[in-house]
Amino acid sequence: MNYLYYPGCSLKGTGRAYDESLKAVCRALGITLSEVPDWNCCGATAYMSVEETRAHALAARNLSLADAAAADKGLKRDIIAPCSACYLVLAKTLHALDEQIETRVLVERALKAGGLDMPKAGLQVRHPLDVLVNDVGLAAISAKVKSPLKGLKLAPYYGCQLVRPYAAFDDQAHPVTMDRLMAASGAECVDFPLKTRCCGGSLTGTVPDAGLRLAYIILKEAKKRGAHAVVTVCPLCQFNLDGYQDKIAAEFEEVAMPVLYFTQVLGLALGLSERELGIQRGIVPAEPALAGRR
């Protein structure tokens, strides 16, 4: 299986462990990822707050480069975008190009000014969670699980932008795809009603009074429900929940809750080493929670 890969800025920086663990899991499952050549930042939530049509043109450059690369190399026209913000921004621009005629015309002209073509119909933006469960399939994954994570209790945290507003492959408020994948890895998911509540987004840095409390609410609930770790699908969620626990301890209480990527948990179950999955990159160490589980 061959897919286009759009890592996004976070996976090259603070979310490095997500990039490492996703690539390791894909190698183990026989999935080839081809990075979109010379991709640019998707624009996240910030660019759309300043410019609308330009934000779509910015995202469309990636779509155009991806489409050209797919045609060139004969790849499946599915772009895997692991960061929820990138996933949503790219999908939103695809929707806008399809639904808003004026945006389509202006973006086409902009791409032409850069010597690029409009992405053709049929190009898709996919999340690795969707690809693993719906393309590879749980049966095929279960067959490759070598060291199930016995007794590991996880709080499955999906965050917001993966399921809203488009809910392309799961429910907007109560998604289950990751729960099923974690079960296939041998771990147990606790009942977690805050699955899709906001982690605070960029507010943890900009308006900590509000942002830190949002992150704390998620962590506190995971602890109350008996989770050994939170498992997430998004680099910003991981960063907020993992990186600010010092400040949360100072402001509210100490939670000491490791925050893993779902690809790290799956990778461990597939028998990959902690090192190649970037487990050591957690600011709150996950090693104690994982010790002796496989």
Partner: peptide
């Protein structure tokens, strides 16, 4: 990125807000 000029041409060809 390599295509910084290309990106600027793309962004500049769109009317700002």
């Amino acid at each position: 990125i390599q295509g910084r000029d290309q990106l600027r041409r793309i962004l500049d060809s769109v009317d700002g807000e």
